[in-house]
Amino acid sequence: MISNKLKVSLYRYNPEEDKFPYMKEYSIEKPDRDIMVLDLLHLLKEDDQSISFRRSCREGVCGSDGMNINGKNGLACITPISSVIKRNKIELRPLPGLPVIRDLVVDMTEFYAQYEKIKPFLQNETTAPEQERLQSPEERDKLDGLYECILCACCSTSCPSFWWNPDKFVGPAALLQAYRFLADSRDLKTQERLESLSDPFSVYRCHGIMNCVNVCPKGLNPNKAIGEIKSMLHKNKKDIIVSDGV
């Protein structure tokens, strides 16, 4: 018999009621068209107000609804259920590796702290011109694939190195932003930025596992950016040794 029901297995945890988190099984009428995982969550919430998750733009640009969908991190609002249903079932869990506040909502404090650590703002203390600072299209092209990050944390929370050292390893999302400013022709703090990343943990805990690239809902490549930072660090070190030698 073909079932018209879709099974959804949902991670539930309410700190005021539950000692431990658990998976709750829901069964709902299969929608007559392909809907997004976020729509599915809204349908479930209509029946059970207590389900909690974050959402805002519902079109993949605000980064609110990163979650673990059938074992892979992604944004609920741009993941069609047809692409993830396995044996008539969808399993939804919070992003791994961060403390859970409730249900699918994680505490992102550590993730944001790493972002702030890399000084995610343009640093250029020269007097600004009356108009804009000029930048050639070629220089600007270097920021493509970097500035589009939406801070959804899908990448960092899929990274085993970040799971181990969330306090010391900057993680793919913040490293992508670190390189976004290193690559910006208008930023003048390259040396300081590199020095702050040169310890054994900040960048070098990346072992090229590539989970970040695999899950990024915006198709960005943090691994490549990390590679660029490593090259800059190596070159910088060599330059320092050479100048020491002189």
Binding site: F121, L122, N124, A128, E130, Q131, E132, R133, L134, Q135, S136, P137, E139, R140, L143, Y147, F181, D184, R186, D187
Partner: peptide, 20 residues
């Protein structure tokens, strides 16, 4: 106000002459 945004780092697309 727009030039201030550029000075803050907003990654505007550019024309060949380097302007916004």
């Amino acid at each position: 106000a727009v030039f201030e945004l550029e000075h803050m780092g907003l990654p505007f697309s550019r024309f060949e002459n380097g302007r916004i």
